[in-house]
């Protein structure tokens, strides 16, 4: 397995496939042969770049949104997926289980109780994965800036690829946000999931500061 090269962030093939973060004991088997792409033979840089472009195009054109309505913004997800706005035009569809999802929509404020479940669901999603955060509440607390039960800045606890402003964002704004996300994925710049794995300890420290009864495993496989 080759080392991740920060100068070539688009090169997703350099990442370890079993993703065992430092200090954690994965209960998933570490047998790399089971995982696709583990035995990739290093190819010429030009070819690698081309392969990564193709992969990213496929990833961007088929996004599966996890069915987890974390806040009020979830009410605009239904119009988004039904006849009026129909997100399936862009290849976006829902995924009922985190194992099959790759986009997580944080639809608004997060209470600390939900944050715990969100972290767990997020870690269970397979890589690469992206987070779209809706509303002012995830950016700076919004109108809940003095509430004792909601967090104010989401990107302290999990990486966010696209923020969509508004309370709540209209379906058109969501479509525009997805458009940005797709462009970023195609360019290979939406690497929040990778940042999360690299800085897992920092994220964990932040998470443990607000979740007082921490009982999650080191990494939720």
């Amino acid at each position: 397995m080759r080392k991740f090269d920060p100068d070539r962030p688009w090169d997703l093939t350099t990442l370890p496939t079993t993703m065992a973060p430092k200090g954690s004991k994965p209960h998933a088997p570490t047998d790399d042969r089971c995982f696709l792409g583990a035995g990739d033979v290093p190819a010429a840089p030009k070819l690698q770049e081309a392969v990564a472009t193709i992969k990213n195009w496929f990833r961007a054109s088929s996004l599966n949104v996890l069915a987890f309505g974390t806040g009020c913004g979830a009410i605009e997800l239904r119009p988004l997926s039904t006849s009026r706005f129909d997100m399936s035009r862009f290849g976006i569809s829902g995924a009922p289980s985190p194992r099959q999802a790759n986009v997580f929509i944080i639809s608004g404020y997060l209470s600390t109780k939900t944050l715990k479940r969100v972290i767990r669901s997020y870690e269970q999603m397979p890589n690469p994965k992206w987070v779209v955060a809706l509303g002012s509440c995830t950016i700076n607390g919004g109108m809940y800036w003095d509430s004792y039960n909601t967090i104010k800045v989401l990107d302290l606890y999990m990486p966010v690829d696209v923020y969509i402003t508004g309370c709540m964002p209209r379906p058109e704004a969501l479509i525009a946000g997805f458009d940005y996300l797709m462009q970023d994925i195609k360019k290979g710049e939406a690497n929040g999931w990778h940042h999360y794995l690299e800085n897992l300890e920092w994220y964990r420290d932040n998470q443990k500061k607000v979740i007082t009864d921490w009982d999650l495993p080191n990494y939720s496989w």
Partner: peptide, 14 residues
């Protein structure tokens, strides 16, 4: 329940 608790009643007192 409690996943959506924002303490509205407390906020409105302020």
């Amino acid at each position: 329940v409690g996943y959506l608790h924002r303490g509205f009643e407390k906020l409105m007192e302020r």
